[in-house]
Amino acid sequence: MAYVIPIACFEARRNDIPLDTRKSMHLKCNTCIFNISDQSFVKYYGINKATFKSVLKAVKPYLRASPISHPIQLAIVLRYLVTGCIELAVAHDYRAKIDSDTLGKILNTFIPVLDGILCQDAISIQMSKHQMLTSSINFLKKYELPRVVACLFGTHVQIKKPLKNCSAFLNKKGFYSLNVMLVCNDNMEIIANDATFPGSCRDSAIWKISRARELLSVTLNGHFILADSNYAQESFVLTPYKSAKVGTYQHTFNAKHTRARIVFERTIGVLKSRFLCLQRCLRYEPSFCCMIVNVCCALHNLRRAPNVTINDDIEFEGDDNGQRDRDEIAQSL
C-alpha cells in the first residue's frame, strides 16, 4: 500500500501531459533517423547516411551527454542548415519536436565543433599535380581555355544588423552581409573560402590579403585561376580584357572566359540551394555566421568528394602580372 499513492500521483501527472508532448519526449530518445530511404535522407539532411555517420563519429568525442541523442541533435543542425528556417522546419519537425531555445543551444554546441573538425579535412587549397592536370584538361575540353584549374569569386550572405560596427557590414545593395570569398575547382569543390569580411569590403581587397592568394601564388606552377573584372590581372589570375573590340582575339578570349565562369556560378548556386540558410538572413552575430558558412562549404565538399585528401607542394615563378600569358592564350584561341 505504501507504493499506491506515489504511483497514483505519477499516473495523474502523466495523464495531465498532452499526448503530443509525450510523443515528442519519446521521439527525442528513441527515434531512429535512419529509418527512411536513402533518397529522402539526402533530401532531408543534405548528406547521405554514410557521411552522416562519419561526421557523427568525428564530433562525438567533443559532445556532452544529453537527454536528446547525439544523432538527433546532429540531424536537427543539418535540418536547419538545409532549410534555414527555425520555426517551421526544425522546431515543428515530427522527428524531434523542440523549442527554439533548445535549438539555439544545440546550434551553439555543434556549429563550432563542426567548424573546427570538418573544415580542416574537407576544404584544402593544396592541389596535387594529378588534380591540376585533371582540372586543366576539363577546362580545356569544356571551355577551350588552357592551364586553368580553378575559379575565384565572391558572394554575399545576409546577416542581421550587428550590434557593433554595423556600418561595415552594410553592403552596396543596402543589406547587412558577410562578403564570402570562394575558390572552386572544375568539379565545383570549394578549395578555399573566407567568410570573415563584412559586406562593405570589396572582392579585390579581400583577395589581396587572403591566405589563399598567398598560397596559390607559389603552388600553381604555370596554371591559372579565373576571376571576373572585380579582380586585378595577376601572374596566376586570368581576368577579362577591358573594352575588347568585336572581332579581336581579346574579344574571343572574353567570350570563352565568360563561358568558363559558369563553373563558379553553378558552384554558388548548388551551395545555396542545398543549404537554404545561406539564402535567408542568418540571425546571429557575424563570427557565428562565419562558422555556419564554413560548415556549409565543408558539407558541400563532403557530398561532392567524400574521400579527397590532398598534400602536395609545388613551386612557381611568375612574371609581368600574367599579361604575356593572357595574350598568348588569347591569341591561340
Rank of each mutant, 00 (worst) to 15 (best):
T248H: 04
C85D: 08
N321E: 12
K161T: 15
V237E: 01
T258H: 11
A65H: 05
V59S: 05
M25C: 08
E328A: 11
L145D: 05
P6R: 00
I262T: 15
V237L: 14
D194P: 01
C290R: 05
T239P: 02
A255V: 11
N35Y: 10
K57H: 14
P112H: 08
D38Y: 11
L78Y: 03
I36Q: 15
N35T: 12
Q279K: 15
P306W: 02
F275S: 06
S40W: 09
I76E: 00
I329T: 11
A227C: 11
V82F: 06
V183A: 02
C85F: 02
S287V: 09
R283S: 09
I310A: 10
Y176Q: 03
V308D: 04
A12G: 14
C9K: 07
A195C: 10
D312S: 14
K23W: 12
A89R: 01
Q39H: 13
P162L: 06
A244M: 08
T109V: 06
G199I: 03
I268D: 00
C29R: 12
P112R: 06
L63G: 06
K43N: 09
N294I: 05
S229Q: 12
L220Q: 13
D99N: 14
R202I: 03
G247E: 01
I123K: 00
P71Q: 00
D320N: 13
M132N: 02
C297T: 07
K172R: 14
G104E: 04
G318I: 14
S24K: 04
S273C: 14
Q73P: 03
S54G: 15
P162Q: 05
I123D: 00
N311A: 14
V263A: 09
F34N: 06
E11L: 12
D320Y: 08
L333N: 12
R64V: 08
P61N: 10
R274D: 02
D313E: 14
V113K: 10
A150M: 12
K23V: 15
V293D: 00
H300E: 02
E285W: 13
D203V: 01
N294D: 10
G269I: 13
L81Y: 05
L299G: 01
G84I: 01
Q120T: 05
I17N: 06
E87V: 09
P198E: 06
Y45N: 08
A12N: 14
R326P: 07
R266N: 15
S69G: 09
N221W: 05
I268L: 10
L103Y: 07
A260R: 08
M132Y: 00
E11V: 11
D121M: 09
M25S: 04
S204A: 04
Y62K: 14
I209Q: 03
L302G: 01
D38A: 13
I314S: 12
S273M: 11
C296M: 08
C184K: 02
I125K: 00
M132I: 06
L27H: 13
L226W: 10
A330Y: 09
N301P: 01
Y249V: 00
M25V: 09
M188G: 01
F41C: 08
P162R: 03
R79H: 07
R13P: 00
K172P: 09
N179G: 01
P286R: 07
S66F: 10
Q250T: 12
Q323P: 00
K23P: 06
V218M: 11
Q279V: 03
C29D: 03
E285N: 13
H70E: 11
R280P: 10
I292Q: 02
D228F: 06
L63I: 10
K173Y: 04
I225E: 05
C281G: 06
A260E: 03
